[in-house]
Design a protein around this nucleic acid. Structure first.
Lengths: 233, 233
DNA sequence: TAGATTGTTAATCGATTAACAATC
DNA sequence: TAGATTGTTAATCGATTAACAATC
């Protein structure tokens, strides 16, 4: 009786879109309009929203404010989530300064690092602290969300430290596939892997168009035509 | 007859994992081992790999090198993809300096921006150039992949410029839901939205544990219990 | 009332899992 | 040969789409 995961992934999209519309002063909106603008199937939007809100009214659609409120409540915003970031390198600093997060109820309170050159500095008013202060502060401030942006070789042990410190949800930006102990929510955000998907999609587009011209034939990889027919007994 | 999208999203994970194993000197590996380490269903890994490689051998599993080669070929690596990045702010700079990409065959050749303070500087040896040079360079160098990391209000027009410049695949890091014209591959990477999913999963964990103690009750949002039972005629 | 739009139940579709035969 | 592991076909499961009744 758990809700479909796929839906949960679409909801933030609706929310981002609705906030833009709200700024434009629009006060109510129909699922068909959302679907059109977001380039999605109307029935899909209708079902998703029916699931998390009952503010919809025939003929007029959803009141903007109520829909946004329901969406945020369902997604667990409102009680803004405080997070600690570990690994204040370039990516870490970029995330600490990412204004967008505030709109979604995420607030990075501080960054942690072991580099003395970074410790003591601030990003957007948020301090970078020595890593050894993480356990104490996380417990004292009841911070449950952690963002992991350390170098690969430190990923595993840093993750362990975060879990020991009472952090219950980790957003992992390293390429290391960590596995979460029971009770800990882990989300891997492998940017390089995401790019791979894009790359694959672009290649597929060329294939469809028959622009296959020069095949991406590697150096040695054999033709490798799977089940190329032949005859079988 | 298109392959399942879900599979494509798992493949980069295997690749990342296998490369780590390869560095450790492991020369062959079984699907059950991969599944165990990655905490996935064994049958699922078996089917995914069967789809893209025929190097598997009963009893011994897959030779490491062949499997990695097949994986990379399928994902369209090898012919490394050159990309331009537009919007060299904090996030843009972090991506330009993200070493991980190289391992996956992505190379960001240059960044573009309109800020005179940024133009002329370098990140990891990659120049930041004035935006007006994008169209000419993209065409001349045949760059087909673009990364969009501009502020929200510039997203739409910058996207249009990239498409006009001949870019065929755009990795969109802005929260603006762009829609792609035919022939252009668009991948939205809304970091704030990704966080939302994590946040939701953490909340769900608390629910399961019955630690609901203090409900995440916002300021005003009404109870809004959908189909709370009642009786129906 | 008439019409548009929601909410829900049923049908389709696709992906995951299971079972098993093939084979090194 | 015996045993482990692959590759493939069939069964299950879940999500998406379609159809339609409810209702403002």
């Amino acid at each position: 009786m758990e809700k479909p995961l796929a839906t949960t992934q679409r909801l933030p999209k609706y929310l981002a879109y609705l906030k833009i519309r709200q700024k434009q002063g629009i006060e109510s909106i129909s699922t068909s309009r959302i679907a059109e603008d977001l380039n999605m199937a109307a029935i899909s939007v209708r079902k998703d929203l029916a699931r998390i809100s009952n503010a919809g009214r025939p003929k007029t659609g959803y009141p903007m404010d109520a829909l946004i409120a329901d969406l945020e409540r369902f997604l667990g915003y409102g009680n803004a989530r405080d997070a600690f970031l570990v690994g204040a390198g370039r990516l870490g600093q970029a995330l600490m300064g990412y204004a967008q997060f505030a709109e979604y109820g995420l607030s990075i309170l501080a960054g942690f690092d072991i580099d003395p050159a970074l410790i003591g500095s601030e990003i957007d008013g948020k301090p970078i602290l020595p890593l050894e202060k993480l356990p104490g502060l996380a417990r004292r401030m009841q911070v449950k969300v952690g963002i992991l942006t350390v170098p690969e070789d430190a990923a595993q042990e840093t993750f362990a430290l975060m879990v020991e410190s009472g952090i219950r949800a980790v957003w992992n930006f390293t390429a290391i596939p960590l596995s979460a102990p029971p009770g800990v929510v882990l989300q891997n955000e492998n940017l390089a892997a995401s790019f791979a998907v894009l790359s694959k999609r672009l290649a597929a587009t060329f294939d469809e168009e028959g622009v296959s011209g020069e095949v991406p034939c590697g150096t040695f990889a054999p033709p490798n035509e799977k089940r190329e027919g032949g005859h079988q007994s």
